Each structure stands twice: as C-alpha cells, then as structure tokens.
Computed example of a mutant assay.
Amino acid sequence: MSRQHPIISVTGSSGAGTTSVMRTFEQIFRRERITAAFVEGDSFHRYDRAEMRAAMAEAARRGDHSFSHFGPEANLLDELEELFRAYGETGTGRVRRYLHDEAEAAVYGQAPGTFTPWEMLPTDSDLLFYEGLHGAVLTDTVDVARHADLKIGVVPAINLEWIQKLHRDKQERGYSTEAVTETILRRMPDYVNYMCPQFSRTDVNFHRVPVVDTSNPFIARTIPTADESMLVIRFRDPHGIDFPYLIAMLHGSFMSRPNTIVCPGGKIDLAMQLIFTPMVLRLMENRHTELAVAG
C-alpha cells in the first residue's frame, strides 16, 4: 500500500461486470481531474491465445482438465505483484496490453489474441487502476492483495454470472453454447480455489442477485436487467461509512447486516458514485499530503 502512489484494484471473474465498474471510475476520475494509469488483468496472462490453446491441449493430454486462466499456472502473478509493488514505491512499473480483437490489434499492427511489448507506465499518473481476475489474489508465493489501497469485488450470483458470460462470449466472440459451457466447467476448480477467496480480502463487494428465474442459465434468452436485480453491497470495515446518507440517497434500499446495504440493481452506478467518490478523494488527499512532505 502507498500513500504517494495509491492503487485501486477491481476484481471479478470473466463475465462478472468489472468493465462496467471501470467505466464508472472513469467518470469519477474525469470529474475530479485525476490521471489514472489503467491496467487490464488479461495483460498478465502467461500465454497468448494460440499458446493458451496449446497449453490446454497439453494439460488435457496429461489428464488435467481444469487448467484455466483463473489459476496461477496460466498467469504471470509474480509480475503482477511486482507491478503493484513498484508502482506503490515509484509511481511506475512494467506493463503490456492484451489485444482482444481486430480493432485493438489494428492499432499495433498485430494479430488479435497477442500481447504488445512490455513497457514502463508513464510517471505522471495520480493512481493505478487495475481491473481483472487477480487484483486481490494470495498464493503460497504471491500476495497481490497487500499492495492495493482499495480493493473492490464484483460478484454476480453464479447463475447470473454464467448467463452474462454465455451471452458475451456467444455474441461478441462467436463461441457456441457448448464451448462456453466447457470453459465454465474447466475453470470451476480454479474459481473455487483462487477467485472466491479474493472476495474475503476486498474492501467493498458488489453482489448482483437477480429477482427473476435464472435456474437454468444455459437456456436463458436474455440477461436479467439491472431493474430485475437487487444489489448487495458489503463493506469489510464499516467504520466511517455514512449508512444513513446512503440509505437516504438510494431509494428503496435497506441494511440487511451492520456492514451490508441492499438496493435496487438499477442504482448500481449511483451507488458506486456515492461510495467511491469520497474514497478516491481521500486517497488523493493522502497523496497530496505525502508529496508535500516529501517535497
């Protein structure tokens, strides 16, 4: 953790909705004139798209049918922790980009599914913003979580998460239902062992729960809308959280536990704005104070 060079980490699995959270933070940063260095977790995968297919095939030949992007073997977690550590100390660090599609790849003159070369982050950012799979991961050799100043979990109910992944991968990436289902099954052990434990280390969790029938996510024709959901917001440390203000501002909300608010799903953006704007401003106040002392 660093007062001079703070790190915000948003963690969630594939299809959880972390990209939507990133867009809300982009609005906060723009409004408050904060320069953020954005880092995508996909850029710390160990293998590019073709290499990952080969690695999965090799794992299957060995009888390992659970090799996935959720686990440490398929990721550069040492490098991710080193980025967090270096940024906290110096305000920069070593990064690259994963090029998901033709549009992203065309900018670099590369093929989709490949990585750009490693380079150093610019030194003029106010904070680092990470969005991906492993922003609060802890293994026997790596502790990424300890370096982040604000850790956020994005965790839809599991059936909703699967529906979102199915629709995204089928519509945007052209995968079949069978292929996406196979991926979900293959990732399950790593999901249990490496994804779920992170949400006990996050400072705030956003857990979207549908209020419509999602009992068979593999035949769902539509993704439940925000208004067809409730949002469970859990604070690891409720000290300093103005719950009466949040309840008043989030119409239809209530507290289910001393550290938990439940509100209509359609208010997720407002809830994030109300909760995270003061947290971000506090990080910036600490940063400016430290820089003034150091200067």
Rank of each mutant, 00 (worst) to 15 (best):
S43N: 02
S66C: 12
Y130G: 07
V107D: 09
R31Q: 15
I233Y: 13
A86K: 11
P112Y: 05
V144I: 15
M56R: 15
D242M: 14
F254W: 11
I152N: 05
K170N: 04
L231F: 04
W162C: 04
V280G: 05
G113C: 03
M188P: 11
C196F: 07
T123S: 14
G240H: 05
A294M: 12
S200N: 09
L150T: 02
G265D: 06
M120V: 12
S20V: 01
I158Y: 15
K165Y: 00
G266I: 00
H100T: 01
L83K: 10
F29L: 13
R257H: 14
F70C: 05
D269T: 10
A148Y: 07
H147R: 11
P258T: 06
N75W: 09
A59D: 01
E178L: 07
V280L: 13
R3A: 10
Q164W: 06
G252C: 06
W118C: 01
E89V: 01
V232Y: 14
A16P: 13
R61G: 09
E89A: 08
A59L: 01
D101S: 04
A60W: 08
V21H: 01
P122A: 12
H134D: 01
N259P: 06
V211I: 10
Q198R: 09
R96Y: 04
A148S: 09
K151Q: 05
I28T: 02
A179R: 05
H5W: 13
R85K: 11
S43I: 05
I268P: 00
A226Q: 05
N205S: 12
H45S: 03
A50N: 10
G240R: 04
E228Y: 02
G15D: 03
N216Q: 12
G15Y: 02
Y194G: 08
R3M: 03
V107P: 00
S200F: 08
N75I: 05
T181H: 14
L160M: 14
V144L: 09
E40P: 07
V192M: 12
V192Y: 08
H288L: 12
D237H: 12
N75D: 15
F44L: 03
